[in-house]
Design a binder for these strands. Structure first.
Lengths: 299, 299
DNA sequence: GTGGATTTGGTAGTAATACTACATAATTAA
DNA sequence: TTAATTATGTAGTATTACTACCAAATCCAC
């Protein structure tokens, strides 16, 4: 049985590379070099190109915890569609737009998959109950994380309790300084080291508010002062021209939280929601099309 | 060869269901019912459980355009990790947070995969050249699409040309009414029917500006007045409690555009970027950690 | 209806593939 | 240097995917 652990196949392969035997390593290298070939080839072909015998390939597969070559190939196929390892997907100047798009989609999907595997359900659960039990919500973030905060605000406004997402640092701090124990703060920072966001978190905490932290890592200064710690881990390449995929993971976390909260608020709230949606439909839609409140979402 | 067309395996299976022969349909039904079983079983096992002979299974695979059963299984494995078909992933009140998270991740990943397959490289290319050739940029959107516009603004500010993303409708219209042929407007609306956004697009167009549209569909009123049409297609369920995945697809499109534009602007711009990043690092980071401008991204 | 033609499904056989038991080579330790 | 242990390859087997061929069913003209 393959352990459906947190790490993806390629990561697992990489870290177990030095614990492998010499000839098995050849197989591992072939897999990382040309995974597509391995995926669509037979065991004999793989063995031949790696310069080893077939049982070695077999041992390589079972050694990684798979039932056999076939099972490994399936896992490889799945890992492959979540994006090729970042080595190949580095972007360079000569790339066509189509190539860029392909690489960015690869990175995006595999990053989201990664954040999925790292997301702690317990912390999410705690976050949901905290939100459900509070009388007001405040979302805090800057730049990319600020957008996540704004997005969260848009969704949280449907919860039926006062919520805000001040965008400049002074207003953020003021909100924290004036808060109370019945308010929940959601502080967002991918790095977890944004100074002003940290100060807001500390202040809110000291005022007795519940503080939920969303960050790319669990051991950051900001997270240490949070009651609930939600980790949205991504590949976030340090490369300059790499798009910031962290915000996408953050947005998915917001999706999950808001959906969970909405579901637990029950029918009464549901009716309000419908009314709001119907009103919005008449607002900004074209008149030559039927303004069906159902099929249209928010923009 | 399997046609790596726009439609995913399950969609393809569904639409070719009535063009299949009686016994092959049994196989198709088994695949949709219990894809995991099919994936990890041999042909004989599949044939037995479907109540048909092995060659029928074989014909089923080749009929769908695959080289054989193995190739089909690989494709199935890949389709499977992109999320089970949406029927099963409907959310209901009794779901635990973990289940919700799983379903939302499923939907998100498969939606992004879908938008990838529908994205037209030519239009993207045109968008990039349009942006590179313009002297100013304006991003327009409301609510969820407004966030995409803000995100685009954050990235576009690194291009070194004036850019803005007015957030209220009046300011948006004013920007369009005062624009010139050297400006490019990026108008964003998932539905493509947001009236005010459409009016902005029309006005900008009539003033001679280049208008790039980003929408969830290519045949919407808004798209008709756009010079460049970028389709970010998703599954966007009409269900109320379904999270809006469309914005994620939009953000990925922005990622691609901004990365492509950055890459084509060359070295001079690169230096500016580094300086900005270094400055930003000293700004908002903690002092107890080394403020490495490289490893930190934007928030 | 009936006989011919065509489509649809299954049987049996073959080539290949994955997997296993065993033996030899390499490496390490005594 | 030799014994023990580990690592790798050889040879063989059982399974699996695939193919050629045949039978049943369906369709259509008369």
């Amino acid at each position: 049985m393959e352990s459906t652990s947190q790490t993806s196949l390629f990561e697992r392969l990489k870290e177990s590379l030095d614990s492998l035997r010499k000839s098995e390593r050849k197989v591992a290298e072939l897999v990382t070099e040309d995974p597509t070939f391995v995926m669509e080839s037979s065991m004999s072909a793989v063995a031949a190109r790696a310069g080893v015998s077939e049982p070695t390939v077999m041992r390589f597969c079972t050694g990684l915890g798979f039932d056999g070559f076939q099972a490994f190939k399936l896992a490889l196929a799945q890992a492959l569609i979540l994006g090729v390892p970042s080595v190949e997907s580095a972007m360079n100047r000569g790339d066509s737009v189509a190539e860029l798009a392909s690489k960015i989609f690869d990175q995006t999907i595999s990053s989201i998959d990664r954040s999925r595997r790292f997301l702690d359900p317990d912390q999410m659960e705690q976050a949901v109950t905290a939100i459900l039990g509070s009388r007001a919500l405040v979302f805090i973030g800057l730049s990319a994380s600020g957008l996540i905060a704004q997005d969260a605000l848009q969704k949280a406004q449907l919860f039926g309790i006062p919520c805000s997402a001040p965008s400049d640092t002074h207003q953020q701090f003021m909100a924290a300084a004036m808060t109370d124990p019945e308010t929940t703060f959601v502080v967002i920072s991918n790095t977890g080291r944004t100074r002003s966001t940290m100060r807001v978190a500390e202040m809110a905490r000291s005022r007795g508010a519940t503080v939920i932290g969303i960050s790319g890592d669990d051991d950051t200064p900001m997270m240490r002062v949070c009651d609930v710690k939600i980790v949205a881990k991504t590949f976030e390449n340090t490369d300059i021209y790499t798009p910031t995929v962290s915000r996408l993971a953050g947005l998915v976390v917001i999706d999950i939280l808001s959906t969970a909260v909405s579901l637990r608020r029950g029918e009464a709230h549901f009716a309000d929601f419908e009314a709001m949606k119907a009103g919005l439909a008449g607002y900004a839609r074209m008149s030559d099309r039927e303004t069906d409140s159902g099929s249209a979402s928010f923009d």
